[in-house]
Design a protein around this nucleic acid. Structure first.
Lengths: 190, 190
DNA sequence: TATCTCATGTAATACGTTACATGATTGC
DNA sequence: GCAATCATGTAACGTATTACATGAGATA
């Protein structure tokens, strides 16, 4: 998703595929689902929807309410729909530094056929397994060899770094295990 | 770390506490340690070091080399050192959306006394346990109740959301388990 | 000969957060 | 009466990424 729409636009298109909503509603939905860990700000949603409207990916209709602010009910356009489904299906390119390019796609994968989805999962899994191997073989001790300032106990410092490194490894392991799990689920037919 | 220096400045100060280095070296060190999963760009390091120099947190001395670009060997100033140690020790405030405000601090915690460090770990752990409970009780089915467009199989869609949700939960579990683990290690004496 | 590593940076752009601004309704 | 929720947004700022620019020495 390097070029063109960013991940928020992707989420918005995905959610608007399911049902028309206001910006406010979209945020609420995200808060309890896709973005429940890291909520998005409304002040980011509104300009994004505006830009997407200008780009013809979404439209809205105004609903007047006595005394209150008008509602803007957004829905996805045919162009937006096509773009979204194209992204969903297009060959997956794992991003070394981020998992969410995959997980986000997976989130909306009920719109995808089984074969394409399995390809995505396998591509991502293969990549993460290689990455995990590399991380496992990272020699932290090399760092301990660097000359530090005199007063410092470098052996002890490196112990902290190792614990930190374990944290990173455990994350990657958790992720690859989850990938294997969903691969199984999808293979059996979801 | 909302105000003042951001996490990159924090890392830079931490690494420069250990030994003077060039911007290039700092990147290399980060690549195989603190930032091995998500490398930082050199084009971000150089301006950051420049800004930190202006703010009196670091200084550099030039080392000329025949034909090649001059080296800028950065080291931390007394002011930078004080600021860094103050941050390390100051009461930990968990950030709901990011783990790295804690993990980064932990990375440099060999410079911290046991009692303060244990406080940090316990604060973070308590917070994450509450957060994990909330996430576990999130009712995804509520989402399934929303009226989708007609053609959509909402039951199937929700299954994907549940799998996605499991991914988030597993991350949080892995993290809290790691926190318990390091708490044990630190309690026993590292 | 060509690519990689070393070593420095700037400029433009994209992305995200915080603060600010407004105002009605609902629940405690 | 006060806070939270609903509902819209703008402006300023901070952070991060990508592209651009330069050039030597080492390695394949």
């Amino acid at each position: 998703m390097a070029k063109g729409p960013n991940s928020l636009e992707f989420i918005l298109l995905g959610l608007l595929t399911l049902r028309p909503s206001t910006g406010y509603d979209l945020k609420k939905t995200m808060d309890i689902s896709v973005r429940y860990i890291s909520p998005v700000a409304l002040s980011q949603i509104y300009p994004t929807l505006k830009r997407m409207t200008q780009n013809g990916l979404v439209t809205y209709r105004l609903v007047e309410r006595r005394g209150k602010t008008d509602l803007k009910i957004y829905s996805i356009t045919r162009a937006g729909q096509e773009l979204f489904l194209k992204w969903l299906a297009e060959p997956h390119k794992p991003d070394p530094y981020r998992f969410d390019t995959f997980t986000l796609r997976f989130y909306f994968s009920s719109l995808l056929d089984k074969a394409t989805l399995l390809n995505h999962i396998r591509t991502e899994l293969a990549f993460r397994q290689v990455q995990l191997d590399i991380a496992r073989n990272l020699k932290l001790n090399d760092l301990g060899d660097m000359a530090p300032i005199e007063e410092l106990d470098m052996t002890r410092t490196v112990k902290f770094w190792e614990l930190y490194h374990q944290y990173g490894l455990q994350f990657m392991e958790t992720y690859t295990n989850w990938l294997k799990y969903i691969r199984g689920v999808v293979e059996k037919g979801i």
